[in-house]
């Protein structure tokens, strides 16, 4: 008995966590997938009715807005945060004396809750007393910056706040990447008289491809999960102009009492995440084990 116990201790230690993950991750995904195929409304029903919830979802103008917002927001957020992060990393890589302090400043927003970020930017961007009023006070009475309350532009305020929050993190990733490039190659290039910008575009940046990939994965993951920021900054409004799938799902689950819609929209979110993450994780795990 004690011998058995001794041999199996590692398994017994891992077992509770494994079971928890099996039930609360995979079991729950299965539950949500199942319910997304039923006619559940206020209460879950378990009789499968096919893809009716997904049909309702894609017929819904609100989901249509939320889903296309995800791509508008996701594309701009990822692209700008990556470019900004790379530029900042390269600027900081020039033997800056105060690098530590500057890095700290660029990265601190990442320590804040999205709710705090949203609250701050909501105040800064509010047309009545914020930036708009400030610039008008400087002698530009016609200056208008009402994106926060303009249904066509409000989604871009989310992009601004999200970039403010996350670009410093991308910078940190790229900076670590820049520092890990082989110094010998760079020195050789310099001895040959190749200008600094060419060293970056031809040697350093191409060798950082894995970091671009990592940054892309992390940022797209952040984009799909964006929920708090929207709630704090715009509440999904004006109307539902800034809804994202995450806020749509929440509204259906907890205020509209439409479990079927909540489940099907959650499944779509998961499929988007999987489409991005699975190939990445698969290649990561393979390269680590192989």
């Amino acid at each position: 008995m004690t011998k058995w116990l001794e041999e199996n201790t590692p398994k017994l230690v891992l077992a509770p966590s494994f079971v928890a993950i099996l039930v609360f991750v995979y079991g729950f995904i299965a539950w949500t997938a199942w319910v997304s195929l039923t006619r559940s409304r206020l209460l879950p029903k378990y009789e499968i009715k096919g893809f009716i919830q997904y049909e309702r979802l894609f017929d819904s103008p609100r989901w249509d807005t939320a889903f296309s917002n995800l791509f508008v927001f996701g594309f701009l957020f990822i692209a700008i945060a990556m470019i900004l992060g790379l530029v900042l990393a390269i600027l900081l890589d020039q033997n800056i004396r105060t690098e530590g302090a500057i890095r700290t400043i660029y990265l601190y927003p990442m320590a804040l809750s999205m709710i705090v970020t949203g609250t701050a930017w909501k105040w800064i961007l509010n047309p009545g007393l914020g930036l708009e009023a400030l610039v008008r006070g400087w002698g530009f009475p016609d200056f208008t910056f009402d994106w926060l309350v303009n249904p066509d532009m409000a989604i871009y305020t989310i992009v601004i706040a999200a970039i403010w929050q996350s670009s410093g993190f991308v910078m940190a990733l790229f900076l670590a990447g820049l520092r890990s490039v082989d110094q010998e190659i760079i020195k050789a290039a310099q001895v040959d008289g190749i200008p600094t910008w060419r060293v970056y575009t031809a040697i350093i940046i191409p060798s950082m491809a894995p970091i671009f990939l990592s940054a892309f994965i992390v940022l797209s993951h952040l984009a799909i999960k964006s929920f708090d920021l929207v709630i704090a900054l715009t509440g999904g409004g004006p109307g539902y102009a800034t809804d994202l799938p995450a806020t749509y799902m929440y509204a259906m689950a907890f205020s509209r009492g439409d479990i079927g819609q909540a489940a099907s929209s959650a499944m779509i979110m998961m499929m988007v995440v999987f489409a991005i993450v699975v190939p990445y994780l698969y290649s990561e795990l393979r390269s680590k084990n192989g």
């Binding site: 494994f18 995904i29 995450a246 995440v273």
Partner: peptide, 18 residues
């Protein structure tokens, strides 16, 4: 691997059953 994968799911997918 299964546990690692759990890091990446959007939590919306577990809200209702939880």
């Amino acid at each position: 691997s299964l546990m690692l994968f759990g890091c990446f799911i959007p939590f919306q997918v577990v809200l209702l059953p939880m």
